[in-house]
Design a protein around this nucleic acid. Sequence first.
DNA 1: TGAAATGTTGGGGCG
DNA 2: ACGCCCCAACATTTC
Length: 485
Amino acid sequence: MSPAPILVWFRRDLRLDDNPALAAAARRGGKVVPVYIEDRAGEGAWAAGGASRWWLHHSLGALDASLRANGSGLIFRAGDSAEVLGRLVAETGAGAVYWNRRYEPASVALEEAIMARLGSEAIEAAGFAASLLFEPKAVTNKQGGPFQVFTPYWRHCLELEIPDPVAVGRPDWWPAARLPRGETLESLGLLPGRDWADGFAARWTPGEQGARDALREFVSGRIDRYSKDRDFPALRGSSRLSAALHFGEIGPRQVWAAVKERNAETGVFPSSEGERRFLAELGWREFAHHLLYHFSRTPEAPLRSEYERFPWAEDPGKRLLRAWQRGKTGYPIVDAGMRELWATGWMHNRVRMIAASFLVKHLRLPWGEGARWFWDTLVDADLANNTLGWQWTAGCGADAAPYFRIFNPVLQGEKFDPEGAYVKAWVPELGGLSPAFVHRPWEADAATLDAGGVELGRSYPRPIVDHAEARRAALAALQSIKARP
DNA sequence: TGAAATGTTGGGGCG
DNA sequence: ACGCCCCAACATTTC
């Protein structure tokens, strides 16, 4: 008699390769029932945002197709995860539920509850490590606590052993369970109602194959120029793997192994500044997830409590916030970034820092407003990375930028987009300006603006705040929360 | 994974 | 020839 069926509960591990839960289930020899549950309440206050759901929809479609090639596609369900799993166990006579762990606070709580519930029913329940290089509990400082500064954290991690993805591999075949499919992918309602996301498809290929292709393309060449090119948004300098990693279409061990593999002949690894820097970005991803695990309130509250009393600016009618969201601040590099975000569901990292800094320091609007906007508009929206990024920018997080570090959007633009190519790609109304003025159109004289086809205040806004003035106000506000008990 | 203010130095114009 | 000033260029400090 063959073993009882096993439910494989897919979540943010939408791949067949290097998927320990699936591999373990396949090894058992019983039928495998792959299921995805859309459980918005189970995500706490951070159910996936709009752009992210677009990606999720297509990634689930790709996973379903891959699974169907083995005989049985993904079972889609909506509702409370514990209840749905309980019903499926009953329907299928499953003896076990396997999944790959998540580390966000709501997910940790949900998994604990499910583990207890299944345990009480004598159903085997097992979570596997798949989405990080290191489990949060495996990385502690000498006092046994979490690191709060990246450099020592990552130095410590590099001493640890990275699990080999080949050891998990991709199961060749497993006995398929025939189940009524019930709900369809479409019925989960993941796609946005409006035509907002229609342009995303021109840029992205969600799914395991797309992720694999993107990794190969990056690692076979661009990675060697990564440390130089990564800061220039007009170039394609970064890997653009963020969404694939968020949804687990590819795992960080596979990324690590791909970089290692390209050095197989020499054995020297990492072999270039580009590789070293790229791996350190995986390190930031680990760091962010570990910090969120240990400081579970940080999506809502500053890690440094003195920032609870930060005097944010008034914004009647949300005029400033709206201008920022729509890419109409009058600062070209900020507006270009915000428009790239809206059009593609993604923004170059250098520009994320500039745009975020502008919201928090020039407009003095709460970082949570920015975090929410990014959460809803980024296809790669990730609670750990988003939280770390915004708290870093606002100066209130772990290893944060010092409060006095205020990006000058003009200088940043001129430094990292010297020709204005990035600005012109997303803010076409500035296309007629020379590099000397494309980042500071308000300084051009009337004839220059006229020749460039720019009508300040009409075709492109004047700056909504004055840089020098905003900088002074930000420093004063930050001063006001310092050195008080 | 800054920017601006302030300080220092040294070349060159000039009386 | 000398001292003085200006100021770019660079370094340091401060926010």
